[in-house]
Design a protein around this nucleic acid. Structure first.
Lengths: 287, 287
DNA sequence: CACAATCTCTGACCTTAGTCAGAGAACGCC
DNA sequence: GGCGTTCTCTGACTAAGGTCAGAGATTGTG
């Protein structure tokens, strides 16, 4: 069996397992749609938000809510500020039902874990974490966007805010590349399910380019995305005739430094004008 | 987050991932039920078998088949020997459709793997394998059954057949415990999804009991089931007042010997009358 | 050979999950 | 204050997935 077949086989296996688990804990008390809605309402939520979170048609949502409120689990009232929006709130019975579903779900998972030894449970969690991290990494898309695209600027703002916290001297957002200033080079944006989770750019016209502003969103760290971004930047630069990359970084950014070293960058004498770049690295691109 | 919550979180994540994958490759060409049926028919299958494999109502299956044969993908003919049963066979168009679905599925998995480096793919497969093995192990049930129950005898037959192949001198099935002979002791049967996948028994009235006939089905090896069975036998025996276990094994059964050693058994002088038991082990049970 | 069991098929019926086209109320902006 | 937009709700409709009760053919068994 090749790799693709092995993954498909695992997916089939796990689909089936999850099906059994779901059947067991849902116990036919509620249709799936209503159960999901009960969870999602939580401590009250606007219908508009519910619709977007669950991806429901407005008519369908309305009907689901009517059914739930018919069972006395939900009340739908007006929104405090916006009269068009309505908000759904769980009644006490609704909260009990929700807690009950939650407990059943926990119980069926607990029953699954029960026969395993503590060491085996650890291994299971570790392996699930690994599957998850690699699957997430694999589904992140990286694409070139203009450096003034709104999601690009959002990433850069987050990058600047983080550096401002981490650098002892703070970070001046004016040091960011100005919108539209990237005429020679590429800005790469990483997205997970459409949401921006990282960025980076290379710039320069000569045979030597500079990589800057490589950033990964905190909730996407540990996946190996920094490495993917760096590799994608190098590939893109190489495709534009760049043969060497230089980059500078701050001495407090230990994980960035480790990333560059692991990526084949060698530390060189810094001649950078930016006060934030205390270290300089260089790498020759091989085609 | 506790362990249960972590597992639930992984399950939610993976459900969603699989949903995206499925939506993508099924591409709305076929309803899920029909697609599954196309796969399952393969090179022809009796309707009765299809029904049990897919867990379908006979009326529903009939209707699905009519729909598929209406599209020219399937022909339904008589069974060669049993006139009540009918068999479904894929037409050429059906085989093309099936191959097409298969190709789409492979393609979407290939697209998932594509962004990963070879080392990351290896790690993903390794982790998926780990999740699968531990999940399988956790869902195996172990229960006491009479030593003459049909699934118990089936396991013992398989055990004897295997030993006969592995022992240079062969194995005489008469050496198996006779049906109904286990009056003092317990026969434990391991099942996965109802299917017997392993067994083992302890027997004896004194403070010292003997564990015999520990066997795990070839397709359930590598899960750690032998270890679970052994632990379950010890627990059951201890519950019946047994304080020490002795057991004998054949010198060619390397993995069994390793299992006993890892389980805390110490090799002792063999005084066994059975010609198959060249090695003897002993363990004091602690309560 | 009779009779019970097995197997497939049909028709009637049901729930879940969803889509679509408006109606009507409320809001935001000019 | 008018007007386009946003939001919810209703009614009409559809597809998928499935259940249930027989009818009719066939088979195994006493």
């Amino acid at each position: 069996m090749d790799q693709i077949e092995l993954v498909r086989d695992f997916n089939r296996f796990y689909t089936q397992r999850l099906g059994v688990l779901n059947d067991h804990y849902l116990g036919q008390r509620r249709p799936l749609g209503e159960a999901r809605l009960l969870f999602e309402i939580g401590d009250g939520a606007g219908l508009r938000e519910l619709r977007s979170r669950l991806g429901l048609d407005s008519g369908y949502l309305s009907r689901l809510l009517r059914s739930l409120s018919g069972d006395g689990l939900v009340t739908v009232g007006p929104h405090p500020t916006d009269g068009r929006v309505r908000t759904a709130v769980l009644t006490e019975a609704g909260q009990r039902e929700r807690a009950d579903l939650e407990a059943r779900s926990r119980e069926s998972v607990a029953a699954l874990l029960d026969p395993l030894t503590p060491a085996q449970r650890e291994r299971l969690l570790e392996a699930q974490g690994q599957v998850r991290r690699l699957t997430r990494l694999a589904t992140v898309t990286i694409e070139a966007v203009p450096d003034d695209a709104p999601p690009a600027r959002a990433c850069l703002q987050a990058y600047a805010a983080e550096l401002d916290l981490r650098f002892p001297e703070g970070y001046d957002p004016a040091a960011l590349i100005a919108p539209g200033a990237l005429t020679e080079g590429t800005f790469l944006l990483a997205r997970e399910d459409g949401r921006p989770v990282g960025c980076g750019l290379w710039q320069g016209s000569g045979p030597v380019a500079e990589i800057r502003h490589v950033w990964v969103s905190p909730d996407a760290r540990g996946l190996g995305l920094g490495r993917r971004l760096l590799a994608a930047l190098e590939r893109d630069a190489a495709g534009h005739g760049i043969t060497s990359i230089r980059l500078g970084t701050h001495s407090v950014l230990a994980e960035a430094i480790a990333l560059y070293r692991a990526g084949g960058y060698r530390e060189v004498q810094s001649d950078d004008s930016s006060p934030y770049n205390q270290l300089a690295f260089e790498k020759r691109l091989v085609l």
